[in-house]
Design a protein around this nucleic acid. Structure first.
Length: 248
DNA sequence: CAGGTGAAACGTCAACTAGC
DNA sequence: GCTAGTTGACGTTTCACCTG
């Protein structure tokens, strides 16, 4: 098995193991509350798109097993198993409204406002074009970064910070209807694709950052609840001692 | 020191949701 | 209905650490 294949295997199983762990810890005290709140969010926030129950997972897994034995892998079934959960921002923000100590995930402001340190400050032409629906989209040209940030062979691309006013040299791109030549159409398609990729790249980074924050938050919550649980157990023991004195 | 390994981060795709 | 945003999955790269 290749390295990637192994990692994939581990990742997939890790997810499954996590679900199993939550199930096996249902009788636990602290982990239960976390798992409960987690699953509650999964079920309440997404409605029909919520994470399937463990029984459902097991059922689907069984059917999958038989299907796989026949050599048929249904990607839709896989999707069902690995269905989406609500965004980390939502989960955490809801948690924060329930629990005062839980911080909210805020939009990156302080760090990301202004020019990021590794942005290449070369002049990049930025144009804004109007879509068919009348929306103004910012068309940011991709600029290969010549900074040391690029460690790999692939060039890294940086985003110019959007500006509210139309910058100099802004070109109101022609509407799709006015693009005649196939070359223009191809260029437009390429630009759109690059823009989409660039946006998604940034979105993925942001998503990962939120996920890390979310995990940290859950970990700290577990720590707090563990302490609470310990205290309550001690209190219970004390009360037990008081209520049932030894008859020596 | 070269090679193996695991973890983390990344870019991309695709499915999905929310907002308009 | 369309579009932008979100996120799981996957493949790749990079880095640190370990071992022979």
């Amino acid at each position: 098995m290749s390295k990637c294949g192994r990692k994939k295997y581990i990742k997939t199983n890790l997810r499954q193991m996590t679900m199993e762990t939550i199930e096996s810890q249902q009788d636990g005290s602290v982990t239960e509350s976390v798992a409960e709140s987690e699953s509650a969010h999964m079920q309440t926030q997404t409605g029909q798109n919520s994470i399937p129950t463990l029984a459902q997972v097991a059922t689907i897994a069984e059917t999958d097993e038989s299907a796989e034995s026949e050599g048929v892998i249904d990607s839709h079934k896989r999707r069902e198993i690995l269905s989406r959960r609500p965004s980390y921002r939502k989960i955490l923000n809801e948690l924060s409204s329930d629990v005062p100590g839980v911080p909210k995930i805020e939009e990156e402001k302080s760090e990301e406002e202004g020019t990021p340190p590794n942005i290449a400050t070369m002049a990049v032409p930025t144009s804004i074009y109007q879509t068919s629906t009348g929306q103004y989209n910012e068309e940011t040209e991709l600029a290969p970064s010549h900074m040391a940030a690029a460690t790999g062979d692939m060039p890294t691309y940086q985003i110019r910070a959007p500006t509210t006013a139309l910058p100099q040299g802004v070109v109101m791109a022609a509407s799709p209807g006015s693009l005649h030549s196939p070359q223009q159409l191809a260029e437009e398609a390429t630009r759109k694709r690059e823009l989409r990729l660039m946006k998604n790249r940034e979105a993925a980074k942001e998503c990962r950052r939120r996920k890390k924050e979310y995990v940290k938050c859950l970990e700290s919550r577990v720590a707090v609840l563990e302490v609470q649980n310990k205290k309550l157990i001690e209190e219970l023991e004390t009360l037990k001692d008081i209520c049932s004195p030894k008859t020596d």
